[in-house]
Design a protein around this nucleic acid. Structure first.
Lengths: 253, 253
DNA sequence: AACAATGGTGTATAAAGTACACAATTGTAA
DNA sequence: TTACAATTGTGTACTTTATACACCATTGTT
């Protein structure tokens, strides 16, 4: 244990040495018309795009910060959020730094700092979102997964890491409750998996596997009205879904 | 884009609102005599124990910080490190805060802050480690996985999360290169898996599965001298091992 | 020389994953 | 009205992987 004097000295040292700045960047996934979408911001006077993000406030739990930030951009309140990595290269804020470096000296420029950024990914209901730009951006909108623009900073890396994590997650957790509408058909759910994985799946094997998870309830009436054979409607059995989320699927060992 | 005045005002606001403190906590796993071990610190004047940790310095990449911190505690240089979560409850530093709260006022006490902590786990060679206590601790030593003492702060949670992550990792990545000596027998490797998973595995099926990964090389001579039948010696084929690390094992989808 | 303890290898069975075929329904074009 | 394309539902054979269990080999001990 330190003495009083040691503690005060240590504290002064530490204050100079260790202060840092935490931001959160979110990869928000939505699903619409058979396409996986990501919510992006287009900053003023810039070609490239950004992930929605913000700063963690003093004493604010990071989970709460992530929810707050996403509420500002999407209007949504209770969002499926998953922390997946922290990114911490010292020069990752270079964009904002460069943008303002001729305007004000570094000492007065908040952006002339290193930002550690916590990466979250979110799975949301496409129709529930009302995209809202922030003060630095002219646009906040959905972009297709297979038509992504170039991203600023290390947001390319953050996005890729999020997608990899999501794909990995498919192997041991159910997915879809947060992305699909209340009722959906099996082919629609399959399309979700196919866009996430970026590959075709066999219709019949997909159906068997998904049903084998035991997390779906089939409605009595199929969906009428469309062309072709009327498909059955399914919904997630929330209790079993939640259980599968915590338990995980197959063991491996 | 902000004007000069807006930027300066924004920066001042931000400085007050967002400054934070980043620490790193490490769960260091070692393997010795058929037992999984974790490196722990016993602070002065405390019953409970701590994980080795430290602070990330300004402008220091976090990966580098983790390596630096572990070098101080273990003497090891190039360590297998895996970031797995960031822990950010506002009151998680309560221990140090309480410890010193009667000694100096909060403004002068570095510990009267919220610390965000990045959790890393490390897999190391047991014999390569020379445990070294820090200035706050009377002891730094290995503890058996099944004989863990109580831990301070949220280190219990950090440890559990690390173990869960490690167990999950077993399902899609090889493990052992960083934990086993250069040459080892199949039963020894099996014991590693068994202690991590905390369950018995079938000898014969384990062997087939591991060999099926194609990452082991069998030495020509078995290990002589011990009692009973002489077991074969294996070593990891580093190239194939690395490849399996990045590729992952089974797909699932 | 018999025995206990440990390690190496094989085989039968069950479960899971893959590939593919056929029937049913619905709107549309002939 | 009928043939057809498109889509969906269901089944079945085959392959691969996982699981359970049996037998033999080696080595030191009794």
């Amino acid at each position: 244990m330190l003495t009083k004097e040691q503690l005060i000295e240590y504290s002064e040292d530490a204050r100079k040495t260790y202060l840092d700045h935490i931001s959160i960047d979110c990869v928000v996934f939505g699903f619409h018309e058979g396409q996986m979408k990501v919510l992006l911001l287009k900053p003023d006077d810039e070609e490239k795009w950004l992930l929605p993000g913000g700063f963690v406030q003093k004493l604010e739990p990071i989970e709460m910060a992530a929810n707050r930030i996403l509420k500002e951009r999407t209007g949504l309140d209770k969002i499926f959020l998953q922390q997946f990595h922290i990114f911490g290269d010292p020069d990752r804020a270079k964009f904002h730094h460069d943008l303002y470096k001729d305007t004000v000296p570094d000492e007065e420029n908040w952006f002339a700092k290193r930002f550690l950024s916590i990466g979250y990914y979110a799975l949301v209901d496409f129709f529930g979102v009302v995209p809202q730009a922030d003060q630095f951006s002219e646009l906040c909108t959905w972009r297709d997964l297979d038509d992504m623009p170039e991203l600023l900073l290390d947001h390319e890396l953050i996005f890729k890491t999020a997608l990899d994590t999501l794909r990995l997650q498919l192997n041991y957790q159910p997915i879809g409750y947060n992305l699909m509408p209340g009722e959906f058909t099996m082919p629609e759910l399959q399309k979700l998996y196919e866009t996430i994985l970026d590959k075709k799946l066999d219709r019949r094997n997909f159906q068997r596997r998904i049903l084998g998870f035991g997390i779906l309830t089939r409605a009595e009436q199929p969906r009428k009205g469309g062309a072709h054979k009327a498909p059955y409607l399914y919904s997630f059995d929330l209790e079993k879904y939640q259980n599968a989320l915590t338990e995980g699927f197959k063991g491996g060992w």
